[in-house]
Design a protein around this nucleic acid. Structure first.
Length: 422
RNA sequence: CGGGGCAUAGCGCAGCCUGGUAGCGCACCUGCUUUGGGAGCAGGUGGUCGCAGGUUCAAAUCCUGCUGCCCCGACCA
């Protein structure tokens, strides 16, 4: 893509509305703009990154046997009354009436809708197990939205639901999903941990969270320094206990002592058991018995991952995208093309060559000085930077560096291609 | 909802204390120059000072109410 055709309004100064680094950088680099508190526009560059995350999640969901569906954002009140969450979910549930004064809510999650869907369609154990997922916009009327898309009211989420006949099979589906999650977060290239978690309002038995480690995280996590014990502190605290008091204590599994770290919750997997199948009467006959379905639910905060990735990967110049999330693989900085007609020509050639090789290239052909181009490309975090100028043409080479390097190296076309392929 | 802060040009801010009809930097427009790290000079465009009411000869400035936004807390798949 040519930068002239990309709508990415970058800012020179820090936006006054943002406090945490990821929020500042997302606004500054033209990924998002605020519409209202906790509600954001995603601009082209932001959408590109969102899609990268989505696609990794989608690929792994599919390869682990999940099937994609799309459920509505607007949900009828009756379903929520069946599970009694119409009352219990609290004010986070944004409710309203349609013109016929029927009650609806904006979906903060989809257990009710998916259970309703499957109880109508699944009549035999032969149709099981089934795991469905969607990537869709959720709305939770947070008491205090904050830190941009990190804790917004409207956000993009992948939510998956598994349906099994027995607890043993639920265990398998859960384990399967956990594997998929590990695969996903490995591919995303983030420093993350899987920790034991509270099951909270949503109910159920086992539950684990996936956290991206970052000092600005809202959750405190405890780890053993010797074993793989890891938990959200919530689970370890007595009433009124100071989390810091856990530090240095022996790990509950008897191996090592505890240490604390902060994390951003980006995924959560649950064994729901029969909580929803019972309240919504979803059962299937096996032999002479009617059995309630064993359910699991599995969330990933897609938009939150974008913020978490930035929180973990930035410097004073801007974002440093992990390869898997970068909106472009390479940018070509065209330095002062008016100096020499050949500059643009060579940019065009390289642009075509790299594109043909399957790279997503951003050619900065804007009518700007080199300083602006370098700063912007660094701000938006393109991992590989190629510079073409009168000088590089006279010397018959390309200048190349990665986002994190200060100094460039001089390369031939072939060397450049190998380098970018990494 | 409790505590704190902010609201003045597209963005970042000053002016407010001590009332006299709005300013700076960046951006934007025009021209010339410049061209490897956010260019220079000259000229220019752009504001119901968040909204409503009050005090006053006169309000961005003082008073009251409201709204929005941010931060801390409570809350939170």
């Amino acid at each position: 893509m040519k930068a002239k055709n990309l709508f990415f309004p970058t800012l020179r100064e820090d936006p006054s509305e943002a406090e945490v680094i990821s929020h500042k950088l997302m606004i500054k680099s033209g990924l998002i703009r605020k519409v209202a508190s906790g509600v954001y526009n995603w601009l082209p560059l932001g959408v590109k990154i969102l899609r990268k995350v989505e696609n990794i999640v989608r690929e792994e969901m599919n390869s682990f046997g999940g099937q994609e569906v799309l459920m509505p954002m607007v949900q009828p009140g009756e379903l929520w009354k069946e599970t009694e969450r119409w009352q219990k979910y609290g004010k986070e549930l944004l409710v309203f009436q349609d013109r016929h004064e029927r009650e609806f809510c904006l979906g903060p999650t989809h257990e009710e809708v998916i259970t309703d869907l499957l109880r109508r369609e699944v009549k035999s154990h032969k149709q099981l197990p089934v795991t469905l997922y969607q990537i869709q916009t959720k709305f939770r009327d947070e008491i205090r939205p904050r830190f941009g898309v990190m804790r917004s009211r409207e956000f993009l989420m992948k939510d998956a639901y598994s349906f099994d006949l027995t607890k043993e099979n639920l265990d398998l589906s859960y384990k399967n999903m956990k594997e998929a999650y590990v695969k996903i977060f490995d591919r995303l290239g983030l420093d993350y941990r899987v920790v034991k978690a509270d099951t909270g309002e949503i109910g159920g038995s086992d539950s684990e969270e996936i956290h991206v480690l970052a000092d600005t995280g809202e959750d405190l996590l405890v780890f053993s320094n010797e074993s793989d014990f890891a938990s959200n502190v919530e689970l370890m605290l007595e009433e009124g206990q100071d989390p810091q008091s856990l530090k240095g204590k022996p790990s509950p599994d008897g191996k090592g002592t505890l240490e604390l770290k902060k994390g951003i919750e980006v995924g959560h997997i649950f064994k729901l058991g029969t909580k929803y199948s019972e309240s919504m009467n979803f059962k299937i006959q096996v032999e002479n018995e009617n059995k309630f379905l064993e359910m699991g639910c599995y969330g990933i905060g897609i938009s939150r991952i974008v913020a978490a990735a930035i929180e973990q990967n930035n410097d004073e110049k801007g974002i440093i995208w992990p390869e898997a999330l970068a909106p472009f693989n390479v940018c070509i900085i065209e330095v002062n093309p008016k100096n020499d007609q050949k500059v643009s020509n060579q940019c065009e050639e390289l642009y075509k060559e790299l594109s043909n090789q399957g790279f997503d290239v951003l050619w900065d052909n804007r009518d700007q000085g080199p300083g602006v181009k370098f700063s912007d490309m660094e701000l938006i975090g393109i991992p590989n930077i190629v510079t073409i100028s009168k000088k590089t043409i006279e010397n018959n080479h390309f200048e190349f560096r990665t986002r994190e390097e200060e100094q460039g190296v001089h390369l031939s076309l072939n060397e450049l291609l190998t380098k970018i392929k990494g």
